[in-house]
C-alpha cells in the first residue's frame, strides 16, 4: 500500500488507537444515557424527610413558596394510606396519603418497574416512600415513587 510515511510511525498508531477508543467510548456512553432508567430512589439520598401531612400543610400555607422549595426534589414522606387506585392497564399504581381529618393529602404514583405488591398497600396502613415532586392539584403530587419497607 502507498501510505504516507508518518502512518507507519509508532506515534501515529498510538494516536489512531486513542481516537478509535474515544469514539467507541462515546458511542457506548451515549447508548447508556439513552437507555438509562429512572434514578433508583432506593439509593438516592432524599432532599427532605417529613410526614405526608406536614408536606401538605406547607402547600396549604403557601403553595408558591412550597412549589419553589420542592421543585424536582426527591422527598421521603411517611403517612397513612387513604386511597389506592390502579391505572387502566395496571402499569402504575397511585396511592393517596392523607390524615382522616384532612381535606386532601399527597398523591404518589409508583411506576411499572417498582410497583409494590398490592398486599403492601392497604387503606389505613402507615407507610414510608420516596418520590420526585411534580406539583400540586387537589393533592400534592409525587412521581416515580418507591416504597421503603419496614420503616
Amino acid at each position: 500500500m502507498n501510505c504516507p510515511a508518518f502512518v507507519k510511525t509508532k506515534g501515529f498508531r498510538i494516536l489512531a488507537a486513542l481516537v478509535l477508543l474515544t469514539i467507541v467510548s462515546a458511542v457506548i456512553y451515549a447508548l447508556y444515557l439513552f437507555n438509562l432508567r429512572h434514578d433508583d430512589l432506593y439509593t438516592v439520598k432524599p432532599a427532605f424527610v417529613l410526614t405526608a401531612s406536614g408536606l401538605y400543610d406547607e402547600f396549604e400555607a403557601n403553595e408558591a413558596a412550597a412549589t419553589a422549595k420542592y421543585s424536582s426534589r426527591v422527598i421521603e414522606i411517611k403517612g397513612t394510606i387513604a386511597e389506592v387506585s390502579y391505572s387502566p392497564s395496571d402499569s402504575t399504581v397511585s396511592i393517596i396519603l392523607r390524615d382522616s381529618d384532612a381535606p386532601a393529602g399527597v398523591n404518589c404514583t409508583f411506576s411499572t418497574d417498582n410497583k409494590p405488591k398490592p398486599s403492601l398497600l392497604k387503606v389505613g396502613e402507615t407507610i414510608t416512600l420516596r418520590g420526585e415532586f411534580s406539583g400540586m392539584l387537589i393533592d400534592v403530587a409525587l412521581n416515580n415513587c418507591v416504597l421503603l419497607p419496614g420503616k
Partner: peptide, 9 residues
C-alpha cells in the same frame, strides 16, 4: 411532570 416515561432521559 406527572407523566412517566420508561426512559429517564
Amino acid at each position: 411532570k406527572s407523566f412517566h416515561f420508561d426512559r429517564a432521559l
